[in-house]
Design a binder for these strands. Sequence first.
DNA 1: AGATTGACACCTAGGTGATAAATT
DNA 2: AATTTATCACCTAGGTGTCAATCT
Lengths: 297, 297
Amino acid sequence: MEYTASPKPQLSSRANAFSIAALMSSGGSKEKEAAENTIKPLEQFVEKSSCPQPLAEPSLDSQADFGAGGGSPSSSSSLCTEPLIPTTPIIPSEEMAKIACSLETKELWDKFHELGTEMIITKSGRRMFPTIRVSFAGVDPEAKYIVLMDIVPVDNKRYRYAYHRSSWLVAGKADPPLPARLYVHPDSPFTGEQLLKQMVSFEKVKLTNNELDQHGHIILNSMHKYQPRVHIIKKKDHTASLLNLKSEEFRTFIFPETVFTAVTAYQNQLITKLKIDSNPFAKGFRDSSRLTDIERE
Amino acid sequence: MEYTASPKPQLSSRANAFSIAALMSSGGSKEKEAAENTIKPLEQFVEKSSCPQPLAEPSLDSQADFGAGGGSPSSSSSLCTEPLIPTTPIIPSEEMAKIACSLETKELWDKFHELGTEMIITKSGRRMFPTIRVSFAGVDPEAKYIVLMDIVPVDNKRYRYAYHRSSWLVAGKADPPLPARLYVHPDSPFTGEQLLKQMVSFEKVKLTNNELDQHGHIILNSMHKYQPRVHIIKKKDHTASLLNLKSEEFRTFIFPETVFTAVTAYQNQLITKLKIDSNPFAKGFRDSSRLTDIERE
DNA sequence: AGATTGACACCTAGGTGATAAATT
DNA sequence: AATTTATCACCTAGGTGTCAATCT
């Protein structure tokens, strides 16, 4: 007598893995099933870049700190010694060059980055914490934009954590690359007007270590280091496909303070503590509430 | 130290009240603030129809039962003696005329309809139960469609419930009409392909009695009888506005078994019982679980 | 007297890290 | 020995009807 199920499937979220063609033709993000068969990493049509064979060049992308907020950039990137993803030398159009993107949650990201951010990955998918939240400036209020995210390897290494030293060590060469996935923000396409007044939050993106994931989650290798990236694409009126997307039509933003190591269980106890203290869903593990656990017995 | 708030507002849902112009120009449903000032009932540009001055003509709309499911239509409409909203004589294009819409949750709606469906309305907004869920057939897989819903008065009366007789009585003339609102399905625009394989569920629509509601909920008068309607609009490639929308470009579907009376508290106890037994969120009030309440003491 | 409101207990739904067991 | 998995208690977030208090 309980009515929850439904004869036809209902896509609850519009955020999924996508083929590039589907991305631009529908402007949305709902081609769940079709996408699995036609996944193409962003790099493939952007330019040959870092994803499968990351370069070791430690050159900071010029766009990376562009509008990264009013905080002190030195403090957030001071410990960031690993080579960053070199964003390929894009020649944006004058119009796209005006776009700025800032990381809204920079203060919290900085705290994690100082300790060495870790993100749990699970078979069913785990959210990121902190969440990537960005604001845009310089967009055309009348235009439409697709905002998306991906996560690319920082280097070609596999890591392990030395508990006795409380530090990360290189443990060898990276595992084979996994199918790259784009997370198109489910509210895409945005109007420029919306982007100017709203923040774009990637809170619903999920990370998994399941190579066969069917949910469109981003697939990562455990014990590898990753860099999230945010992309914005200006949507042409009815270009049927993105296959012929030109480099002037999109921008990529990288925030070095969002680098993290994918793990199946937290390694650094300080990271665990900071997660518990700052993530509302982990409130049950905070010191103050754990004292009252005894009282409940 | 807890990070949940954000400097800029983030629209969590894209479903809101809309101006028609905003509806078609963006194809989305996000003009939250602007919409409050430019609300126009669908009727206003569709045709002069029922909303403020409902007709008393008990003519069943020809589209109403069109594809209303495989159930027995006689049982669901047999008790439906109140005059239905006469959908104005639309002349759809050949293409739009092919579109069929069926109510997926018809069996449950029938059960409620036999008792006289009631829907709670609150200041903060209350979901409908059952939920309106529809499937479409005959759409062009390559086209894009906006799917929306509204709720119009069934008649010009105000009702009251006679407890001793367990029946509804006419209590006078209807209260002044409230600002009409459209609920654009948050996944709009849909591709025809999506509509053919997915169901469209209006589970997130909320009803309120707050005339000053700022959340885009549908505003209703308590103790009045209403008819939900589902509309589908074929989106032209980049028609900037819907102001010049022609009747051939959309279709309206009405399911008589979804008529309900808006209430601030349930009147018919049989309705209360059926809600408790069929809505998962009311499981705590079911007979079986209420027996175990005693055990918990 | 009828209708409305707000606090409440009880759910669904799902995001946390802890933990022990399983895997490699 | 290191890593991964499944289960769990404990949260957030929010959808239910109930009930007593309030409004009109």
